[in-house]
Computed example of a mutant assay.
Amino acid sequence: MAPRTTRPVGTPTRGTTNPNRLRRMDRWIAAVHGPALRRSPEPPLAVDLGYGAAPWTAVELLARLRTADPRTRLYGIEIEPARVEAAKPYEHEGLAFVHGGFEVPVPGRVALIRAANVLRQYDEEQVAAVWARLRGRLAPGGLLVEGTCDEIGRRHVWVALDADGPRTVTFATRLGSLERPSDLAERLPKALIHRNVPGEPVHAFLRDFDRAWAAAAPYASLGARQRWIRSVRDLAADWPLADGPRRWRQGEVTVRWEALAPRG
């Protein structure tokens, strides 16, 4: 069991949640991190940190992870005791809810920590320390996924980190709702959202993405998906992408962290 403090580490979120809100992140995790889960000699343990006022996201995450590895177990962690009590009726084999925060009070090391819409209320200067604390709870080969989405999960941006630090940034969207790629800027995670200004890499990336999207306008007659794929192919000439057409078709693109990391 992780060391316990006198009180959970962190502050309560607003608790806003909806069924299927985090589906894009869940599916990406299952697809990209699934092989690591299956390689685990022990049943992999996952955490949904700060699941909110209702347990839907934890229930759904476990179901999707089990498509990758049926052995997966999951803890939903909430800093508000009343939210934990409200979630208890949804517990079943492999799913439990506990009171806690960034200390992640669960037994052993964790294969996956998903923290969605948790750090938006924190200062940018606090993010690195939170990331470091959560990374310290990862098992070898474990993954921390931290990001933000809109209220119904149409637009989502997240950072994936391993024990050594951030590795990638993923932009994901319902393509039919997208006017231009820079619409995703409002969902940048806390580490990046205040860096969407001229001179910062993430601003340059979104600028180039908008230009590629505009250049791919003729593909719109084939559908938003084909326009997205064409735009991302053009982006790949100048930006280090970490995925390929299989993920692009899902309305995603993943970029190496070092290309978007804040300056200074």
Rank of each mutant, 00 (worst) to 15 (best):
E125N: 11
V130W: 09
R137N: 03
A115Q: 08
G94H: 01
G100H: 04
R120T: 13
A132W: 07
G94Y: 03
L134P: 02
C149N: 13
R135V: 04
R109C: 01
V104E: 08
G100D: 04
A139E: 08
W131H: 15
V159E: 10
L144M: 05
H99Y: 14
A132H: 12
A128C: 09
E125A: 15
L138A: 05
Y122L: 13
I113M: 02
P105R: 09
E124Y: 05
A115M: 09
T148I: 09
G147Q: 06
R109S: 11
E124F: 07
A128D: 15
A163I: 10
A96M: 10
I152K: 12
A128K: 13
R135H: 01
V127F: 08
W131T: 06
V98P: 05
F97M: 04
G141R: 07
N117F: 02
H92C: 14
D162Q: 05
L138D: 03
C149L: 01
A139W: 02
G153S: 02
E146N: 13
N117G: 03
D164F: 09
T148G: 02
L161S: 14
W131C: 09
R114A: 15
E151M: 11
A128G: 12
F102E: 06
V130I: 15
A128Q: 13
L119C: 06
G101E: 05
L143P: 00
Q126L: 10
A115S: 14
A163P: 02
Q126K: 13
I152S: 14
A111C: 12
V145W: 01
G141F: 04
F97E: 03
V157E: 00
A115F: 08
G108M: 10
D150N: 12
D164A: 14
V110A: 03
G108F: 09
G141V: 02
E91I: 12
V118W: 02
H156L: 10
F102K: 04
H156N: 11
R155D: 05
E93T: 15
E91N: 11
L95R: 00
R133Y: 08
V130G: 00
V104H: 10
D162P: 04
V127L: 06
G147T: 00
G141C: 02
G108K: 08
R114P: 00
G108A: 11
C149T: 06
W158I: 07
P140R: 09
R114G: 01
R120H: 12
L95K: 05
R135L: 09
Y122R: 12
E93H: 15
Q126I: 01
A96I: 03
V110E: 01
R114T: 09
N117Y: 00
E93V: 12
R135I: 13
E93F: 07
D150L: 04
G153W: 02
I152L: 12
V104N: 06
E151A: 13
E146C: 14
A115D: 01
H99G: 06
E151F: 12
R133L: 11
